[in-house]
Write a protein that binds this DNA or RNA. Structure first.
Lengths: 166, 166
DNA sequence: ACCTGAACACCGTTCAAGT
DNA sequence: ACCTGAACACCGTTCAAGT
């Protein structure tokens, strides 16, 4: 808060005329970041590919805001309107692959955990001298993609829906 | 540090005769927690099941220390001897399912991300009044297990090794 | 070897007061 | 409506000094 106040050239307590608390401010920021996610039309031709694209876009947006990532985990993935919107789209896409009901909520949780978790592991702070060398960014992106493919295949493959043969 | 000093009935600065910094102390604690993980013998009959058991035990240990979980994510999963030991066992088990080389490192990362990530999502702080209701613990455990099964099946199934027909 | 007192440079936040 | 000064109750950490 004090750093932010500095940047706005204002005393720290002036912020509290615009924001209820640091925590509330962070909640707003987290949801604002999610607005950048490029969500596919739920009616897209290949629902399974749409799911993949949605998670990949989320991952990219998270990497573009590395400082926010730990905060998502601390709060369990944001609760604002944009988070709900993305969740609804995911459920719609899952339904189109034949995954509905409690199974869909399971799949949703797994995909979100995986995506934010991977982003958290990639966006770490300055590396200490004795730490393992960081793998290059392209390798990590490919790694994320591989695991995502595993999950989506298992999720949609285990319950083939009307689109499964598309 | 001040809370810890209180519990030890000592002034806060006395801690610095035993510990270099708060960060170093946390690193030690994180690795100490990992010592509790019940790791299978890498020569266990069913390597794939051993992998599942190892991740499930890790998950259980993390849930038993909820306050530590966010710290694992912040530091990207601990770097101490116990972390390395578990990583080595995982690699040995993966090798026995036919997954080796760069693919094994990918699988390793995915499994760790998933396990710690899921633990982070489950061990959240006090729930605010407007938050979604927390699903019961058994349901979340079953959810973790489902996703873990998806991943291990995809990992070991995509590269069937000598044990695959066991 | 282990502890203390005092201090430093920080935090988020409140509250009364000013415009 | 928006800001300030002053203050409160915190942090982690250092440093000289004591036993």
């Amino acid at each position: 808060m004090r750093t932010l106040a500095d940047r706005l050239e204002v005393r720290p307590n002036a912020l509290y005329s615009h924001v209820e608390s640091k925590s509330a401010l962070i909640d707003d920021l987290l949801d604002e970041v999610l607005a950048e996610v490029d969500a596919p039309d739920p009616a897209v031709a290949d629902a399974s590919a749409g799911l993949h694209a949605l998670m990949a876009s989320t991952y990219a947006v998270l990497l573009a805001h590395p400082a926010m990532v730990p905060l998502y985990l601390a709060r369990q993935g944001a609760r604002g309107p944009n988070a709900r919107r993305l969740g609804d789209i995911m459920l719609a896409l899952l339904a189109r692959t034949g995954v509905t009901g409690p199974g869909a909520r399971e799949a949703l949780r797994v995909l979100i955990v995986y995506t934010i978790g991977f982003a958290a592991f990639v966006t770490r702070g300055p590396i200490e001298p004795d730490a393992d060398p960081e793998p290059p960014a392209e390798e990590l992106l490919a790694n994320f993609d591989t695991g995502l493919r595993w999950l989506i295949e298992a999720i949609t493959g285990s319950a083939p829906g009307p689109d499964a043969m598309g």
